[in-house]
């Protein structure tokens, strides 16, 4: 475990020493503050549109951070040749994969924490309430969704050599799942065989990231989700995370490092 956390530590340092997070955070804050300053029919209590815009920016930023940070990890190690001294030490390839995963995931978690604190402050400034448990549910679900994204991107970075192509493919897949994943089975009904079977199989195979999008619930102040469903969703995410990481270990096992 110490090796995994040593590798993760370097990834976390990389995130907070690069400008990406700060740029995205500042853009989010600026856009939200500008939107908050707009006078809408002299009613300062209007809050939900602001929550929606803020959460949309948080989601976009978190996906950008997760995908771009993860996509460059292994390719950068290869390109800079730091993979060689690393693997020449008593560090196994699975440890490296898991270390990179935990590093990216924890780094995304830290970024999310900052974003959600800002979101909470912004919402509280308008609504004068702190539904902390609701925000906690949303943030934890969001974080686990990012776990799936990070694991998927890590696997992609071993399959596609160029970080840019991997990032683009991951963005398309993740965007596709978030937008139509829930409806793939309905889409399949209008198709002919064998396409129908393929789309149906896809529906049951893909990780349903839309489970983790609780934005509508917290924007519109819906009651808390029962914790048992949250736990089940987190287990579902964990299963996919491990599946992708095992896939990554399998691909990386025999891959030449130089």
């Amino acid at each position: 475990m110490k090796n995994i956390f040593a590798v993760a530590g370097v990834v976390i340092k990389e995130l907070y020493r690069r400008k990406d997070f700060y740029v995205l955070f500042i853009i989010t804050v600026l856009i939200c503050l500008v939107m908050a300053s707009v006078n809408i029919f002299n009613d300062p209590k209007i809050a939900r549109y602001l929550k929606e815009i803020c959460l949309l920016l948080v989601w976009i930023s978190s996906l950008v951070i997760a995908i771009t940070t993860t996509a460059r990890q292994i390719p950068a190690e290869r390109e800079n040749r730091t993979l060689l001294p690393l693997l020449a030490k008593p560090l196994t390839r699975p440890q490296l994969i898991f270390g990179k995963f935990f590093g990216c995931w924890f780094a995304c978690g830290l970024a999310l924490l900052c974003f959600y604190i800002f979101f909470g402050a912004l919402a509280a400034a308008r609504e004068h309430q702190w539904p902390l448990l609701d925000y906690f549910q949303a943030a934890v679900m969001h974080w686990f969704m990012l776990g799936i994204v990070v694991a998927m991107t890590l696997l992609g970075s071993l399959v596609f050599a160029a970080p840019s192509s991997n990032s683009t493919i991951c963005f398309v897949i993740i965007g596709g799942i978030l937008f139509v994943g829930r409806h793939l089975d309905q889409v399949a009904t209008s198709m002919h065989e064998p396409l129908r079977a393929i789309v149906n199989a896809l529906y049951f195979t893909i990780p349903h990231l839309e489970f983790y999008d609780l934005r509508d619930l917290i924007i519109h102040n819906w009651p808390l989700i029962e914790w048992k469903y949250i736990v089940l969703a987190l287990l579902y995410a964990t299963a996919y995370i491990f599946a992708f990481l095992l896939g990554a270990c399998l691909v990386f096992r025999r891959k030449p490092v130089n």
Partner: peptide, 9 residues
């Protein structure tokens, strides 16, 4: 999947 997903929106 549909049944489970309905808890989250």
């Amino acid at each position: 999947i549909d049944a489970f997903g309905r808890h989250f929106f």
